[in-house]
């Protein structure tokens, strides 16, 4: 009998701050791919996301855990309407058990159930699930869970000392935590964005201030006292190269001066010697802006993958219209 016909005991629920059994299971699977462990603090942080997180498990008849998933729900604006996008942060399967298609059956069943329960048209359902899978997960998700590649990801990089500067009327100040003016600026900024995750004070506080392992610095750009831009920076590595990573970036379309001033701040924040990195959609205005400010593009090993539950699901629409940065995923 094929494993496809087997019934798995599937549980789907809101994530708790402590998920030790799932964490241990996922870490075992990650170790099999040579990936580092996820800490208990990271799992707790996910459960505290403004939109919450969902965990799922599939067990066999003996109660043994065979597959697990964790999805963080992010508030989003989709064509002007409130929605939630799901970031798939963990998929794990006990590939050592069973053979052939049987091996992957519990994870396939779990993801199918997840889609039925939580996904669909907004606002009730999540219209999109997305993530940056490992090579093994990508192969599985494409073949068994209807996931598609949205983009072969690029990274923009620059040596800050190589950037040219002009005087502008924009003033940049560093902000502690989540700045008060953020909500109002986001509402203005997102008007030209057909698909975007919400970047309000709550989201910033959770994503950046409360992150269990990373330290971020946030800066606001003002012109005549009015907020016109925002950038978030952390130190880290991209493909083994150390530098400053722009974890989020909001400037109004065409506002090059604001971009220059935020980059001036980032240059000073990284000490003027290391590299700066940023990841944005290659169809966005920001992608062109960064190149005009001296950044160059290079490929990465990453695919941004998604599964749509909106009908009709058009990959090219999301490809062209989703404005994202590293803020949108745990890569940030």
């Amino acid at each position: 009998m094929g494993g496809e016909e087997r019934v798995w005991n599937i549980e789907l629920r809101e994530a708790e701050p402590v998920e030790e059994e799932l964490r241990a299971f996922v870490n075992e699977a990650r170790a099999g791919e040579g990936l580092e462990e996820r800490s208990a603090e990271v799992w707790r942080w996910r459960a505290e996301a403004p939109g919450g997180a969902i965990v799922g498990s599939a067990r066999d008849d003996a109660g043994e855990l065979r597959a697990a998933v964790c999805v963080v729900r992010h508030p989003a604006i989709l064509e002007g309407e409130v929605a939630r996008f799901g970031e798939v942060v963990e998929v794990a399967n006990a590939f050592a058990k069973g053979r052939g298609l049987v091996r992957a059956a519990p994870l396939a069943a779990l993801l199918e159930a997840f889609g039925r329960v939580y996904c669909g048209a907004a606002p009730e359902g999540m219209p999109f699930l997305y993530g940056v899978p490992t090579r093994r997960a990508h192969r599985f998700l494409r073949g068994r869970a209807k996931a598609e590649v949205l983009r072969a990801e690029n990274v923009l990089w620059a040596q800050p000392s190589g950037l040219e500067w002009l005087e502008t009327g924009v003033e940049v100040t560093e902000s502690e935590g989540a700045p008060e003016e953020l909500d109002a600026f986001f509402m203005e900024w997102r008007r030209s964005k057909p698909a975007v995750l919400v970047r309000g004070r709550d989201e910033y506080a959770w994503r950046f201030r409360d992150h269990p392992t990373r330290s971020y610095r946030c800066a606001l750009a003002r012109r005549m006292g009015e907020v016109v831009g925002c950038a978030v920076l952390r130190m880290g590595e991209v493909d083994g190269e150390a530098g400053g990573i722009l974890a989020d970036w909001m400037t109004m379309p065409g506002d090059r001066e604001c971009g220059m001033e935020l980059l001036r701040w980032a240059r000073e924040a990284v000490g003027g010697t290391d590299r700066l990195f940023v990841n944005v959609s290659d169809r966005s205005g920001e992608f062109a802006l960064f190149q005009s400010l001296g950044f160059r593009v290079r490929g990465t090993d990453e695919y941004l993958a998604f599964r749509g539950f909106r009908r009709p699901t058009v990959m090219s629409w999301l490809f062209a219209n989703w404005t994202y940065t590293l803020f949108d995923s745990e890569r940030g």
Partner: peptide, 16 residues
């Protein structure tokens, strides 16, 4: 050459 063309002032765009 992908990088070198950028040094020569070519810009990268995402296509359909």
């Amino acid at each position: 050459w992908f990088d070198r063309f950028q040094i020569w002032s070519w810009d990268v765009f995402g296509s359909d």
